[in-house]
């Protein structure tokens, strides 16, 4: 199809519908082809790119998901789904830092959407889970990097100490003095080894105790990402208390009436949870 053809939004919608039908039947390749045709008819419609990204995601074509998501975002900066797909593709490619940024962005957009429309969909729950997964992956990346750097550092310091020992011993005179020096260096090397070992212990998985209750949502039992507080003073993960409110407009602790409007973000707790997960990403799957 010629690129300079004027956009035909009706045609585009028609092909989008065909694509959606394929998607429902799990024919993702077929869906992708229809979405592509739809895009050719209406290249300025961000939702067509989001839909194609969704089909590509199902086929694990991560790089293409990223391209389409970014394009969809450039056409519509509040495109929550595009950020959601983008984050998933990036996590699959182990780009955990950007994945986390974009998952958080999707989360923020989703909360704004709920506040604007008053409607609670199913998205917030899955996005919250994705944020947690990104936090864990990002922590793992930093841990790996830390232990790699540290391993190199230890080798380097040990090497310097051993070199110094060899130099001093070579200059020392035979006999008592030399034996004393040798022992002195052996002690130093042993001390250094212990020093590294004791600080490694702080990062040893066996040192991980249970997660403090005040970081944990009483409904999902997961560490909170976006805690909100009710008038009882108890905080819950926003996604899970919303899920509860869909079913019952009551405070989970007191059964008193509770609505979405009564909830307030608990910013201090959110910052505390964030800091805790930054240092303890394992807590996502404790």
């Amino acid at each position: 199809m010629a690129k300079d053809q004027p956009p035909d939004t009706d045609k585009a919608m028609e092909f989008k519908e065909k694509g959606n039908k394929c998607f429902e039947k799990q024919d993702y390749r077929g869906a992708e082809a229809y979405y592509t045709t739809a895009i050719n008819h209406d290249p300025k419609n961000p939702l067509l790119f989001t839909n194609r990204a969704m089909a590509l995601l199902k086929m694990s074509l991560w790089d293409q998901v990223i391209t389409d998501s970014l394009h969809a975002i450039s056409l519509l900066p509040t495109n929550m789904k595009a950020y959601y797909y983008l984050a998933q593709a990036q996590i699959a490619l182990h780009q955990s830092e950007s994945a986390l940024t974009h998952a958080l962005k999707a989360h923020r957009l989703c909360v704004q959407e709920i506040q604007k429309t008053g409607k609670i969909g199913a998205s917030l729950g899955v996005i919250t889970e994705l944020v947690l997964r990104c936090k864990k992956e990002d922590w793992e990346r930093r841990e790996k990097e830390r232990s790699r750097r540290r391993g190199g550092f230890r080798e380097e310091i040990m090497g310097l100490l051993e070199k110094e020992r060899d130099r001093v011993l070579a200059e020392a005179q035979e006999g008592g003095e030399r034996a004393d020096l040798k022992r002195e260096f052996e002690d130093k090397i042993e001390d250094l080894r212990e020093l590294f070992a004791s600080s490694d212990l702080a990062h040893d998985p066996r040192q991980r105790k249970s997660v403090p209750d005040y970081f944990v949502d009483d409904i999902t039992f997961a560490v909170m990402v976006d805690p909100v507080v009710t008038k009882t003073g108890n905080s819950y993960e926003r996604a899970s208390i919303m899920e509860h409110l869909k079913r019952s407009h009551t405070d989970p602790l007191t059964r008193e009436p509770l609505t979405m409007e009564d909830l307030r973000p608990n910013l201090a707790l959110r910052a505390a949870c964030e800091e805790y997960l930054h240092d303890n990403g394992w807590a996502v799957d404790w």
Binding site: G125, T220, F221, S240
Partner: peptide
């Protein structure tokens, strides 16, 4: 949302 298995896994650990 199927968070039942995650939450039950954590209950079981406790």
């Amino acid at each position: 949302m199927a968070f039942a298995s995650k939450r039950l896994g954590k209950e079981l650990a406790k």
